[in-house]
């Protein structure tokens, strides 16, 4: 399958996407932000359509929309319950906007399908480079803020009590989340990018119990999902997103079963 240029590109792009999604996902789960990452992907869809409408790239439109909205969320109240209620109202508005932008633009509907459901064909090497750079930005932010971010994500009250700048950390995290949603959507599509951003992290939680191990397992599951997905999509010509989501969901339930089994033994 590596005989094809587009498969090589897709493979490299997915590898970077999987690493960032697996890494960020551990923190999405520990910060209870699965819901927000779902909404951000819907907002990303609107951003991509907006990008197409005004003639910038869908990726740029997506980054624009997700960044602005995640920073807006970060400066709102920090009570997650209130956050969820107001966010879910906004998210449906954005789906509507996305559909509007697409219908106003002259692009064919296949473009919409690609944004929503992802695609492995048609990624140019220029886009691969963009994705790699963005993924590296996310990874570097994580390395720089690793300790305080882990403290805040796994023990927010403790981190505040120890005097950490939790507000600033929260915004830094939301920026990386926005970037991850935008780059992840390029392969799995905005409809299902939250799967990569939440399920591997949630599965890891059932298997291991330290921050570095959670990251390793989550990144591993994320990589396994996209690699296997790419291979099976290549062989069967079925959509890659189907295989990725099927793999991650199965892994999740196996993890859950393992945890319950362990609790009873």
């Amino acid at each position: 399958m590596f005989g094809y240029e587009f498969m090589r590109e897709a493979f490299i792009a997915s590898t970077f996407i999987a690493i960032t999604a697996g890494l960020v996902g551990v923190f999405v789960v520990s910060r209870n932000m699965s819901f927000l990452s779902h909404t951000l992907s819907e907002i990303g869809f609107a951003g991509a359509s907006f990008g197409i409408l005004i003639g910038i790239s869908p990726l740029a439109g997506m980054i624009l929309f997700t960044m602005v909205s995640s920073v807006a969320v970060g400066s709102l109240s920090s009570e997650s319950s209130r956050r969820e209620a107001s966010i879910s109202a906004i998210s449906s508005l954005f789906i509507g906007l996305g559909i509007l932008f697409l219908s106003l633009s002259s692009e064919s509907s296949s473009y919409a399908t690609n944004i929503l459901f992802g695609s492995i064909v048609g990624i140019s090497s220029k886009e691969v480079h963009q994705l790699m750079i963005l993924a590296l930005v996310v990874i570097v932010i994580f390395i720089v803020f690793y300790k305080p971010l882990a403290f805040d994500s796994f023990d927010h009250i403790g981190a505040r009590s120890a005097g950490l700048p939790t507000r600033m950390l929260s915004i830094a995290f939301l920026v990386t989340l926005a970037l991850s949603v935008s780059i992840g959507a390029q392969i799995v599509g905005s409809l299902l990018v939250f799967i990569l951003l939440t399920l591997p992290g949630a599965t890891a939680k059932y298997l291991v119990h330290s921050v570095p191990k959670l990251i390793m397992v989550s990144v591993g599951l994320s990589l396994a999902g996209v690699w296997l997905g790419l291979y099976l999509a290549f062989v069967t010509n079925w959509p890659v997103t189907f295989f990725i989501s099927a793999f991650e969901v199965i892994a999740y339930f196996l993890g859950l079963t393992y945890k319950n089994w362990k609790l009873n033994h």
Binding site: F151, F154, D155, G158, A159, A204, H209, S210, V211, L214
Partner: peptide
């Protein structure tokens, strides 16, 4: 998710 040692380590 964290075990006791990892939880304590957060403050390192």
């Amino acid at each position: 998710p964290l075990d006791i040692e990892s939880f304590v380590r957060l403050n390192l």
